[in-house]
Design a binder for these strands. Structure first.
Lengths: 132, 132
DNA sequence: CAGTATCCTCATAGATACTG
DNA sequence: CAGTATCTATGAGGATACTG
């Protein structure tokens, strides 16, 4: 019985990125996923596929420019898919790719944690502010 | 045997935040945790407590200004604790609070996912760029 | 060592108007 | 409906110098 040769150290390093290196590609992805709007877009699509206007209406405070820009970046990263139907008026759907679903699941966990711990977090802020 | 009264709908809503509302406190926390530097600081402290200079050296590209600012925000949110020792030269340690440990664990999962999927993500970008 | 203070710039992001 | 184009400006963020 044969096993695949274990990777050399150099190969092993390339198999995984390192977000702590400013020049690593993972840092760019991290900046998309961990961006003000990226996280909310991924979280919104976790529920189901959405149209452009649905996303715009759901995500409070986002501008059309930033929504388009965010969608484009995440599409380029292979996390979301854009489906355009050639009808009048235009109809476009955005949905998570299989890769995006894995990623968005973890984003959702984090967003969910924040939402369910809002009281503890608010208390911490109040304590901090009170102590000068 | 008595049970606590189930919360009214209004109370139930207040028990949890909603990051999709621009004015909700959770949006502010989300902006800290899902920030360019916040995520990397939380991830770095997941390993162990660190000194200011250790964090600065570990997180490629961060400026001292942004590190100080990020640490302050996360400390105010109750996610990290600052321990200052009155010695010369100064010695300051940063560590996760119990609340921060829960949060940072989820941040770490997401960072880890990105790092281990770097090749798929790079491939997706290349495909996207190639297709005009 | 662990910051703070100051200045500066340039990119992010908002507003508005327009279009296929 | 789903964007794009253009303009603007706010402030995030970097560089530098200084300090307890």
């Amino acid at each position: 019985m044969t096993y695949p040769k274990p990777p050399s150290p150099a190969t092993a390093i390339r198999r995984r990125g390192d977000c702590y290196l400013a020049a690593c590609l993972t840092r760019e992805i991290l900046d998309h996923v961990f961006s003000r709007w990226g996280s909310l877009v991924l979280g919104a699509l976790l529920e189901r596929k959405k149209r452009y206007s649905e996303l715009r209406d759901q995500i409070g405070g986002i501008s059309e420019k930033m929504l388009a820009q965010t969608l484009r970046a995440l599409e380029r990263d292979g996390l979301i898919e854009r489906r355009s139907f050639p009808v009048v008026p235009p109809h476009v759907e955005y949905l998570l790719t299989p890769l995006g679903r894995e990623c968005a699941g973890r984003v959702g966990d984090l967003v969910d944690w924040i939402e369910s711990h809002v009281r503890s977090l608010a208390r911490a802020q109040a304590d901090y502010d009170e102590a000068d």
